[in-house]
Design a protein around this nucleic acid. Structure first.
Lengths: 338, 338
DNA sequence: CGCTCTACCGAGAGCGCTCCCAGCAATCTA
DNA sequence: TAGATTGCTGGGAGCGCTCTCGGTAGAGCG
């Protein structure tokens, strides 16, 4: 038995031609049921699987899509967001029989060397790119090509398909919640404004305050960098301004902020209330459990793959999908007695 | 300009044949330097990249390796180990110009359906499998094929290439540290014995106690399941036996254990000392910062890819690599005054 | 100056598959 | 019964590449 069985081999064993075996494998009509059964029996017996390279050479499809995580994303290893996103993409990929290739760039050099050949070598049917910053050069390079692309997170250019959480509404919900509870000196520990997520969460928060007749005191705003230690440092600064409630734009930063608060001997929510954005499991077991704006990260991954599949199937870009977020009240916020 | 440039196109533009362009692309000798320059100029100008499917059809190599994470791994999303491992593999892959495909199985059904075709369709040059449990059926299926495989974590069968942290020595180091500090009632919050890592860490710990003239009191041992909540539950049980020090077999479980301790009003290390295994960044910022046995997860990923590349290049399995672990002392352990 | 040797280049074959078209038998229509 | 139609099958072409082989020009040698 040869290392690799071919259509021809199966045909010989079943007493039919290559073409007929191909038709059986691809579930096409116009095959005599008896013949089909015979061929399928041989395939099952021999464990034949079609050669993907040959198939993709002629069909122009590889069945492989790429997930690109740019070099600027330093938080891949510490933010629970990415594992969840990947899990969602992978789950949808398994369902649709597509293979997921992962391109994790850890330096700009890697990115510059590898990225161009990834998008031109033609062995990817499509690409999912996690957008992280405004004016992302990765997106610019793509616009010329004809490779289907879906961005996770709102890109700052038009005409690109994307899926995103409703960051803006999330920010507004956080403001509503805090205002409704009666907090007075409401602060913001924001996400970097170099990212659209950061911009949107902040914008939404400010809008939310406004519709409650409030404005954000600039002194009560410090931006973090999506990391735990960034949240810690930002909260240390914020404390000095004595806010009574703070919206932290990500769970990871919120955990850092919590540490800063404990370090300063402040208790949550008595001295300072906290509401965070993300709502990953760790926010349930922190002390105290955090009130959060929950975003469906896994589902974002699934939706990204679905949009991409639609694009590959011929849908006209841009396709867009905004996923709802929702408020989950826990112990880090509570009604304020004036 | 056609959607896809071919060797023939480049040849026409440079006034040479397909064969010559191929030689240039593949950096072979026997090409006139002037011709080579001319061809390279055209390639650069047009942005030509060889079609991977065609190349792999004739060469039998795809340049793609797969990473398989079995369905039994529920901790992928919450244990920092996996992102780090993936990061290591990806980094080494980028360096060696190989593409990483990710197979994340989330149910046994997915695994059973997809796994066989992954290993037979012949578009993977090799496979990295994260081993999690004893007698893993994924490994059994592979033995028959001729696909190069490297397992991350010690498999429980012979003849398989693998890379692993020195779990056994790590356990022993933890015992040495605790004994050296003067702790008397030393407990173990173990990892599941259905995994080789769990077995090895426990074995090493028991051996370490033995060489310090101690034995592990069975009542002071409770096993967790690698999760935060598992660590919490196990520590709640352990507390009743009043240990003065506990070796927790993973960082994630240690964080759960810390919560249980706080909940019980016990302080670390005064009431109970803790040493953990992993040494991820979060162990530095916990309260208190944890003394840990640090394992190089990222490097494990890199080594796995290197071994796999060696196998693909023709090395004879089994190839093995055991990575050293080391003790990092922080605040969760301290010398005991008798 | 004729021969060999080397350096370089192009043409052909073929990797395993899909798609298209021709062929053939059986069935249907007028 | 002749012609058209249908159901099924096989063979040829070709996807873009690599590899082998044969050919040509120029250099080196006696």
């Amino acid at each position: 038995m040869p290392a690799h069985l071919t259509l021809e081999d199966i045909g010989r064993l079943a007493g039919v031609s290559r073409s007929t075996v191909s038709r059986v494998v691809n579930q096409q009509a116009n095959v005599n049921p008896a013949v089909r059964d015979r061929v399928e029996e041989v395939i099952k017996r021999t464990g034949y699987a079609p050669n993907r390279a040959a198939r993709s050479l002629v069909s122009g499809r590889s069945g492989i899509i790429g997930l690109v995580i740019p070099s600027r994303v330093h938080t891949v290893f510490d933010d629970p967001y990415f594992p969840r996103l990947i899990q969602g993409i992978s789950s949808a990929a398994n369902e649709t029989r597509t293979t997921l290739s992962l391109f994790l760039f850890q330096s700009e050099r890697e990115e510059e060397e590898l990225y161009p050949r990834i998008i031109t070598s033609g062995y990817l049917d499509g690409l999912i790119v996690t957008a992280t910053r405004m004016a992302d050069p990765l997106l610019a390079q793509l616009s010329s090509g004809d490779l289907p692309v879906v961005v996770v997170g709102r890109p700052d250019v038009d005409g690109v398909s994307y899926v995103d959480a409703d960051n803006r509404n999330g920010g507004a919900l956080a403001a509503d919640h805090l205002c409704g509870l009666g907090y007075q000196r409401i602060g913001l520990l924001g996400a970097p404004t170099s990212t659209t997520a950061g911009v949107d969460r902040t914008t939404g928060f400010v809008e939310g305050l406004a519709r409650n007749g409030r404005a954000l005191d600039p002194r009560l705003r410090v931006d973090g960098d999506f990391t735990d230690s960034g949240g810690y440092a930002a909260m240390e600064q914020l404390i000095e301004q004595r806010p009574d409630a703070v919206f932290v734009a990500s769970d990871t930063m919120a955990h850092g902020a919590l540490r800063a608060l404990r370090g300063a001997g402040l208790s949550v929510p008595d001295d300072l209330a906290l509401i965070s954005f993300d709502g990953f499991p760790a926010s349930e077991t922190s002390q105290p459990p955090l009130t959060v704006i929950h975003q469906p990260a896994t589902r974002a991954g699934e939706e990204a793959l679905h949009l991409l599949n639609a694009l590959i199937a011929g849908a006209e870009p841009p396709l867009k999908k905004i996923l709802p977020v929702d408020l989950v009240v826990r112990d880090s916020t509570e009604p304020r007695q004036p």
